[in-house]
């Protein structure tokens, strides 16, 4: 399982009217890896996220996720031709995420996400936030509310289990003491951690984090690194993250994909990417001929 391809993004293109936000992007993410998606502002990283998690329908391309090992990718063409959203294979399944509405991406394909600007249920308690994340299994246990209204014990047991899972996560993010406080009251760093825990309560195979370290101080940033590594190693959840904080990216990611103007300009290990002249150029700017020519003209006039 580990080391096998989990997510395959193929020729992904997203256009908004005339603007091409993502252009023919292909990359893969491996199971058990932390894959980072980096790039300058406006490179189209969040658009890629929105396409993967079903919030946008991509204009072109395919986003496929395999459950139960990469063998499932064998039926990818069959699934595509059939027009199916998912296709089950022996001990696994393939999910074509671009065909799914956003909630099914989480419910069936088990891809969870967080947001660049934190989206917690601020008027609900920390514990409630974690229980809302377990909506689908609990809904089933409550017999779509019918059995739940009658107060059957099967639901109570499941609810207790859900609270236990929530407690585990509260322990891990260090918020046990604040479980009964409204989520909106937490300090910023804790809100970030809670959002990650909430996404993890959906028991995802792939967790997509949109700038998890944004606004964190160095110590919190370090704690985040530990948390993310733990998620990768202990929970068998692979991660895909957008990040601007290069210390986080270089330290924890196993694989980095660099975007610039919606096009992939580099793809490889953190070391390879760090030394790639194209990447350095995208981040720091290059002195290409055009710039030199303009400068020469300006100087000539002066």
């Amino acid at each position: 399982m580990k080391g096998e391809t989990l997510l395959r993004v193929e020729h992904l293109t997203m256009r908004f009217g005339g603007l091409v936000a993502v252009n023919d992007l292909s990359f893969t993410a491996k199971a058990g890896d932390i894959t980072a998606l980096i790039g300058p502002n406006g490179a189209g990283k969040t658009t890629v996220f929105n396409c993967i998690t079903g919030f946008y329908k991509p204009s072109e391309g395919r986003v496929a996720l395999a459950h139960g090992g990469e063998a499932a990718f064998a039926v990818i063409e069959e699934a595509t031709a059939k027009g199916a959203r998912s296709l089950k294979v022996e001990d696994g399944a393939i999910h074509l995420l671009e065909r799914m509405p956003d909630y099914l991406v989480t419910q069936h394909a088990r891809v969870a996400r967080t947001f660049q600007n934190i989206r917690l249920f601020s008027g609900m308690t920390v514990l409630e936030n974690l229980l809302v994340a377990q909506h689908n299994p609990l809904m089933l246990a409550s017999g779509y509310s019918v059995l739940g209204i009658l107060g059957l014990s099967s639901y109570t047991t499941r609810q207790k289990e859900a609270v236990e899972l929530a407690k585990d996560w509260l322990e891990r993010i260090g918020l046990t003491d604040r479980a009964d406080d409204p989520a909106g009251d937490l300090p910023y760093g804790a809100q970030r951690r809670l959002e990650i825990a909430r996404a993890m309560c959906t028991k995802p195979v792939l967790l997509c984090l949109d700038e998890p370290a944004a606004g964190l101080n160095p110590r919190e940033s370090l704690e985040l690194n530990t948390l993310l590594r733990e998620i990768r190693d202990r929970d068998a959840t692979s991660l895909l993250l957008i990040e601007h904080d290069m210390t986080v990216v270089m330290e924890i990611s196993d694989h980095v994909v660099v975007l610039d103007y919606g096009v992939k300009i580099a793809d490889g290990s953190p070391e390879q990417v760090k030394n790639d002249p194209k990447v350095i150029g995208a981040y720091l700017g290059v002195e290409d001929e055009e710039v030199a020519a303009v400068e020469a003209e300006v100087e000539g006039r002066a």
Binding site: F55, D102, Y103, T106, F115, F121, S122, V132
Partner: peptide, 16 residues
């Protein structure tokens, strides 16, 4: 109640 708080977050958690 989650829907009242934030619809997009709801969808990201697999709520129809």
């Amino acid at each position: 109640e989650a829907l009242r708080e934030d619809e997009i977050a709801c969808r990201s958690l697999g709520i129809n």
